[in-house]
Write a protein that binds this DNA or RNA. Structure first.
Lengths: 229, 229
DNA sequence: AATCGTATAATTGTATACAATCATACGAAG
DNA sequence: CTTCGTATGATTGTATACAATTATACGATT
């Protein structure tokens, strides 16, 4: 698993296609490209200093991820994520994170448990002080540990994808001290359940955690969080 | 949504890349290519009478689907699906099909409900007579209707992907008269719950349905079902 | 003035040529 | 006999050329 990720990283770093893929993906998720924007192979290629070939290959991947839609002989158009999609993703994630937490009970390693504990400890510090950048990082990492610990490459892949999708939105959901503290407390609960090998509880708490995150986002105004400022 | 599917169909039919993608995907899922087989661009290209360019683009998509792994400057290797993966997929699907059924309660159309009813009626006929080919078709279609009816392009896409993944295995799970009849009865239950807008029940029944399918598969010997005869 | 058709430009689809990287085989040195 | 290094071949990565398709503009016709 680490091996695969390593390879992937190498690919992304050293192949032009990987660089194009990551760049365009980033630009779509960050909002640089907006819905229905047309992505032209030559333009993207020139911007990154590569020819059309790696751009095209990257486009095919982006299409499969659902970030762009390619109409044959016509062009590539940014699909974007609607508010409906965001809601759907949170609902799907709540189910899958529950499954993930339950599976993690069986497969998590001592090292992963220790990293979780450290993560929560550090997050407590930053949560109280409103260090939202660090909180976002720590939150991402907490979930990432769980994805790795569930020991299912399919579930891990699936959850990581969705996580990326809503990354931009998710950052905003941690932008209050109250939510940061509550979020970290929920992490603590999930951690303890996994540590105690209580799969049922871990499932419930992780499911609830994602629900809470979504509710908080809605409360704070999904519209503003979602639109590009 | 139909529009997208139509476009996709057109792409697959008329573009070389689409043809290559479908062909290789089919060959992997059908077991023609086995795990760790190396797929060479030139060989695949010659086999289908196309150049390397569309082959490479198809490979990038297959990589993202997780069906092959591309090692930079080395080659493309078939990943295959392990028995562990199959189990994971069924567990994931059981959760997501539940969600799908629940959402379908809100969004299903009269036409879709009618097609479900017809599907179940026809399946009863074939189930009792052991027409497994038709049963497999009908079963796929029943779930497909649900995917469309849930009105979430993300969930629909996700479930369809997994469905394809285990298609080959799934066919075998319907290879007894007893299971065919039980399966159809479960469909009937799900249909009625959706028809009555009982989301909670629909969720439970759909979740259980996938679990039952998996249990049946295990009982009938997952090993034989999975290996290539 | 409006509409249709054609010509031109722009863009994507595919094939091929070349560069870079990796695997293999063979021979020399120890 | 083993091992290392080099050379050769095979394969992938990228760029570019050409073909096919689509969009646009302009003029002719009604």
């Amino acid at each position: 698993m680490q091996e695969y990720d390593l390879k992937q990283e190498v690919t992304d770093k050293y192949s032009l296609r990987g660089r194009v893929f990551n760049k365009v993906r980033e630009d779509i998720l960050s909002g640089k490209y907006r819905e229905n924007d047309e992505l032209k192979e030559i333009a993207i290629g020139e911007e990154l200093g590569v020819s059309r070939t790696p751009v095209r290959e990257a486009f095919r991947q982006l299409e499969l991820e659902g970030l762009i839609q390619i109409i044959p002989n016509k062009g590539a158009y940014v699909t974007g994520i609607t508010m409906e999609d965001v809601k759907d993703i949170y609902m799907i994630r709540s189910k899958l994170e529950g499954l993930c937490a339950a599976w993690a009970c069986e497969h998590i390693t001592k090292e992963q448990l220790e990293e979780m504990e450290e993560n929560i400890y550090l997050a407590k510090f930053h949560a109280e002080r409103g260090h939202f950048e660090q909180m976002s990082e720590l939150d991402s990492r907490f979930h990432e540990i769980m994805y790795e610990a569930c020991h299912s490459k399919l579930l891990e892949h699936n959850l990581r994808d969705y996580h990326q999708y809503v990354m931009r939105v998710r950052k905003k959901t941690l932008s209050t001290v109250e939510r940061s503290i509550a979020c970290n407390a929920e992490h603590q609960g999930i951690y303890e359940a996994i540590r105690d090998k209580n799969a049922k509880l871990a499932d419930e708490l992780a499911t609830l955690h994602v629900h809470k995150a979504y509710e908080n986002m809605v409360k704070n105004g999904l519209r503003e969080a979602y639109s590009n400022e």
